[in-house]
Design a protein around this nucleic acid. Structure first.
Length: 613
DNA sequence: TTTAGGG
DNA sequence: CCCTAAA
């Protein structure tokens, strides 16, 4: 048994790995102190490892332990990369520190324990009177399955990590079919450890004998707690009341508080270079292992670790699906009874996937505020997401289809939210305009030259640069202007594309040529290369130009670049030209009604031409 | 679909 | 930029 926890370190399995370590000021890998049975010493272990151990413990406890599990375990572990870091840990006397730490923790836990007990009681009474449905059921199931199912599935998960088509999904899925309840609950035991159990406490088991128990040997299975209990725990932990009713939130918070760390189990993904990288702190080892390599490259700094887990941005490729499946199955750990009406909130969990940062309590609390806001702000409703944070009954039933159903790919961008540099999903707006409807799917593959336009980097200079580019490159076919997938019901907004001087010029020219109002034509002819500008855009822009020109100086001399804010300071000359065109147009429009038509040939342009050009 | 306007 | 009414 004890051997199990053996944390071997492989410093630089591969370069990436080592880089990862070096770069990250803080280690993204979560360590838990695991008490090695036998000598009782504490050793740091990754969640994955703990997870492994858990199975064993579980078995032992249940007495059903057989050699098989162990065998699996060994196999798994040996294969794992065990990314534990020995050197960086807590200094030399890690075990000592650990001891002290865990003691403090224990104290707290005990307190909470008491509180919970109390609440439990009440809860029970209440429940009994209500003739519980799920919760009770769940718990029961939990008991029975915790031994057998658990390990079985766990092992399966590991044994066939790669093999994950719908059909071959881990046993859990299969089982799910026959008795979804069981499955869900079965995971409960594993779940706690992975999901929201405080680390740094000796690993203990979720006893099957006490399914109903949230507290087990220094470990609290928050998963099994009711909201109320969680709140209670929260209070115990933070010393203040909370009205939050979101279980996940509470659990996370509590876990954070107890562990005094932000390394609360949460899955997070990072999308990088069109590749989705998983950063799973407490997920299946094999997966973790795989992703870590990639993840490593991403974590240039702690901040990067604060990535939010969101769906993939690429069209679901086979691999993606596979991965999702896996994740999905893993996620099953969540007891059914948890789902409740909180599905929505569950998604918050993903945004809460912040890590690696000074785990001060203060931070934790602040974070909570932040998260809350953030979550509500963008409720990612992709099923997938919900699947990540927790499996909802629904998602459980239809794991894969969600990918397809959405058919939308997500991209992430660095969001400055809270200055945390969080990865948030790109919410894109499908252009209503005709141009790229169909391109949407292709967009992802289009190389993003146009992307450099990305949000006016630095205003003016950039603008001008672009102008030049425009002249040089002439046509930058970037159709994928907004390859930002749209969020389900979210606010979709077309990627804001600042107008470049070049565009403005073209527009003006176009107007001069074809006349204002013939936007579609202008667009077609003059903006052929700017697929992202629709006739409406042109129209709007023109309107703005006009407004600007008239505004700051019909006198012509008005302000040159009285624009202090964003966009391009449109050169006065252009503005005046605009105004002229406008005037001319109004004239021609009214008086030269017919000429307007002929204007095409006769070129009202001339007039304007004389003025400029 | 394209324009024109309001938001 | 978005959304819509009109054409």
């Amino acid at each position: 048994m004890g051997t199990v926890v053996d944390t071997q370190v492989d410093e630089g399995k591969d370069n990436e790995e080592s880089d990862f370590r070096n770069i990250g000021a803080s280690d993204p890998v979560v360590y838990q102190l695991v008490r090695v049975e036998g000598d009782g010493r504490l050793v740091p272990a990754t969640d994955d490892e703990v997870m492994e151990v858990e199975h064993l413990l579980e078995e032992d406890k249940s007495g059903l332990a057989s050699d098989e599990p162990t065998r699996h375990f060994d196999g798994c572990v040996s294969n794992e990369r065990l990314p534990s870091k020995k050197s960086d840990f807590e200094g030399l006397s890690q075990s000592e520190n650990a001891e002290a730490d865990s003691q403090r923790l224990n104290a707290r836990l005990e307190y909470i324990e008491v509180m919970l007990q109390k609440v439990k009681q009440e809860e029970r009474l209440r429940l009994s009177s209500e003739s519980l449905n799920h919760s009770t059921k769940c718990m029961d199931v939990n008991c029975q399955t915790s031994d057998g199912c658990n390990e079985t599935q766990a092992c399966n998960d590991k044994l066939q990590p790669e093999n994950t088509s719908m059909e071959t999904a881990p046993s859990s899925m299969v089982i799910n079919g026959s008795c979804s309840a069981q499955l869900g609950s079965a995971e409960a035991c594993l779940g706690p450890a992975n999901e929201v159990v405080m680390s740094r406490s000796s690993v203990s088991e979720c006893t099957s004998s006490k399914p109903d128990f949230s507290i087990l040997k220094r470990e609290i299975c928050l998963d099994n707690l009711s909201i109320r209990e969680l709140q209670e725990a929260f209070r115990a932990t933070f010393g203040r009341q909370t009205s939050v009713k979101d279980k996940l939130w509470l659990k996370r918070r509590i876990a954070m508080g107890l562990t005094n760390s932000c390394d609360v189990p949460t899955t997070s993904y990072v999308i990088k270079d069109n590749k989705r990288v998983h950063k799973e702190m407490k997920e299946e080892p094999s997966r973790l292992q795989k992703s870590q390599t990639e993840a490593g490259s991403l974590s240039m700094d702690p901040v990067n670790d604060l990535t939010i887990n969101n769906s993939q941005n690429l069209p679901s490729s086979p691999t993606d699906q596979t991965e999702d499946q896996q994740v999905y199955s893993k996620r099953l750990r969540k007891p059914l009874c948890e789902d409740d009406e909180k599905n929505e909130n569950l998604q918050m969990e993903q945004f809460a996937g912040k890590r690696v940062r000074k785990p001060t309590r203060r931070y934790i609390e602040e974070l909570s505020e932040f998260e809350t806001r953030e979550c509500t702000a963008k409720l990612l409703s992709s099923v997938k997401n919900s699947g990540h944070c927790q499996s909802s009954p629904k998602s459980r039933i239809r794991p894969v289809h969600d990918i397809g159903s959405q058919g939308i790919s997500f991209a992430t961008r660095q969001d400055s939210l809270g200055g945390l540099g969080i990865q948030v999903p790109f919410v894109s707006r499908v252009r209503r305009g005709r141009p790229r409807k169909n391109l949407a799917t292709l967009m992802n593959f289009v190389d993003e030259r146009g992307k450099r336009d990305v949000e006016t980097i630095n205003g003016d200079e950039e603008q001008y640069l672009r102008l030049e580019k425009f002249d040089a490159a002439g046509d930058n076919t970037d159709d994928n202007a907004d390859s930002r997938p749209l969020l389900k019901g979210g606010v979709r907004r077309k990627h804001h594309r600042a107008w470049t001087l070049g565009e403005v010029l073209k527009l003006v020219d176009g107007v001069a040529r074809y006349g204002a109002g013939r936007w579609s034509e202008i667009r077609r002819l003059a903006f052929a290369s700017y697929s992202y500008r629709t006739s409406v855009d042109l129209k709007d822009k023109w309107r703005n130009l006009l407004r600007a020109s008239l505004a700051h100086g019909p006198t012509d001399k008005g302000a040159k670049n009285s624009r202090k804010h964003a966009s391009i300071p449109i050169p006065t000359n252009i503005l005046s030209r605009v105004r002229e065109l406008a005037e001319m147009h109004s004239q021609t429009g009214i008086e030269l009604g017919p000429s307007k038509i002929t204007g095409r040939g006769g070129r009202i342009v001339q007039e304007k031409g004389s003025g400029f050009l």
